[in-house]
Design a protein around this nucleic acid. Structure first.
Lengths: 329, 329
DNA sequence: TTGAAAGCGTTACCAA
DNA sequence: TTGGTAACGCTTTCAA
């Protein structure tokens, strides 16, 4: 691979001049031409390591996710990437399989990779751990989808509790009183917030909470599937079930089907994420939809602000979910 | 940030010794201890740029995808990443939104990023373009899901034609003769291969090809949705429809539902990808399932082979899809 | 087993 | 506007 030296030699100027040309400094027009053609001929490419070493910066943004194959994250990241791309940044993505150890390790790795910024959907890390790892780097961070209690960073969330409340309202308005709820594990930020919405709705309407109607398990298809059986085998089964992410929704529907129960005749289902799923069933599935694209864009915007020098306190945005059907039919 | 020099000073040894310690060379036990604690105290981390510059290698694998939010790719990449991770590699992922220009640009970027290997799901690039971009780097490449005609590289594919043929067999065996087919755009590798399966089945069974029953459009929800209308509004509509990826399957089902048509009574549907979708419908959807995890693992294995020095010709693996229901009911 | 020193390719300062 | 040169932090060779 050709280096700046080769280009300089061929163009008949110094390395310093080539470097200036490359980085947009003042260079005589005649020299510009020569350098351009030398670069062309030699197929010269900047060595990213040399540049990174010297300049102490790189065009990388680290993206740390629990899972890479969850549609919600995919959609968020897709939007994020598109915005960052326009500013010349590229993403180093890493998923930690919802594993605490891997979450630490990968965060460590990203930080030590020379990234300029970090977009992070956290799961297990406490504020102490987070600061222990990140403090000696000064890397702007945006937390997405979840907060870490005690961490001062930009944060893009959705109105989890309110969205669930709206879903619950719809069900209650239709006469449902026994409503089951399939949520993620207790410590999970979004699970907690969504449960708040659930409890609030119950109490607002004077419905007694029945712990048999609540599941807190990993946010998987299996959890949804098993919840169907657990709930519908109760002596007093629910008349409606709310699932709080895509995989659990899918599993729930699948589980009900395998019990030969019909939606909505035998039990109503309120889904979450994946707007596409909505119109696949015989009866359109009511659903809570998170503004994935907007989440990604907002996170990117926050990060770019910081990279351009903004240094205020951590900003928190709560974006609104949409509940379908839009008109309350 | 502390450097090797600081560590050397603190540990009372030379930089070279620290470097050896870091890279697994022979170092006296007593020194090892000292170095370890110096590193600990100083919170020393290797500077990836300096190392990359000197060693001309890095722990990065480039992953270039058409879209990041397609479940099939997500699942493949998830498996890939897990295997590479165990060998200390990390993925720099980049998606090009199925855009030709971006495909070139991002490939260029990844190559110039100091990646050690490349996993690439191509779409528009010809062999000439590919070689033009890659030739001056010597980076092992694995093509996934699609081949580029004329490129000698490791390649992990599935048996597209055969899988479609098996799906068609099932339908034909049940008496279907008018079978419609929703495929991706013509130039797309997998679209072509899947169409081959379609045509072969038709001719094997002496069924005349009717061009009104074939759609070649982008592999999206919209395409599936519109296909439903196009096909079912024909004077002589099909009795079965095969969709050839996840989004098109979803769109197709959704479109049929909006026409108030029932599956399978009014028309049978054969889906593709997303095994989870299968059991969500009232009647389990027959489906072609690609071995996503195996694809990812195989690609990783191929790449690691190369990184360890294997230098043979490009190897091609064709993995088998599974058609559900497994037992031909 | 150790350490001095020569780069790796780039940028940025400073003098011309 | 230009070019010489000293870093940047690390690895590796070669002698000791």
């Amino acid at each position: 691979m050709a280096t700046i030296k080769d280009v300089a030699l061929k163009a008949g100027v110094s390395m310093a001049t080539v470097s200036k040309y490359l980085n947009g400094g003042n260079v005589r027009q005649a020299h510009k031409e020569k350098i351009r053609s030398a670069i062309e001929e030699l197929q010269y490419r900047v060595n990213p390591f040399a540049r990174g070493l010297k300049a102490q910066r790189s065009p990388y943004i680290g993206v740390l996710l629990p899972e890479i194959d969850v549609p919600f994250y995919g959609n968020v990241v897709s939007a994020l990437e598109k915005v960052l791309r326009e500013d010349g940044f590229h993403c180093i993505m890493s998923s930690y399989s919802s594993d605490h150890g891997l979450e630490r390790d990968h965060l460590q790795f990203l930080l030590s990779s020379g990234i300029e910024g970090l977009v992070y959907i956290p799961e297990h890390l406490t504020a102490e751990e987070f600061y222990e790892l990140t403090s000696r780097y000064r890397i702007p961070t945006v937390l997405v989808d979840r907060m870490i209690q005690g961490v001062d960073a930009d944060c893009v969330l959705v109105n989890n509790a309110e969205a669930v409340q709206e879903a619950m309202e719809r069900l209650i308005k239709k006469g449902h009183k026994r409503i089951a709820f399939v949520a993620g594990p207790q410590p999970m930020f979004t699970a907690k917030e969504r449960m708040v919405g659930y409890f609030r709705s119950l109490s607002d309407h004077g419905i007694l909470y029945d712990e048999a109607l609540l599941v807190n398990q990993p946010t998987t298809f299996a959890t949804g599937y098993q919840s169907a059986q657990k709930f519908m085998n109760l002596p007093n089964p629910p008349t409606a079930i709310v699932a709080t992410n895509y995989d659990m929704t899918l599993g729930l529907i699948s589980g009900l089907r395998d019990m030969e129960l019909h939606i909505p005749e035998d039990v109503q289902v309120f889904g979450f994420d994946s707007i596409e799923l909505r119109t696949v069933l015989r009866t359109p599935l009511p659903i809570v939809h998170q503004p994935e694209e907007e989440i990604g864009k907002t996170a990117a915007k926050y990060l770019l602000d910081r990279l351009r020098g903004f240094a205020g306190e951590g900003r928190i945005t709560r974006l609104n979910c949409t509940v379908y059907p839009k008109a309350d039919a």
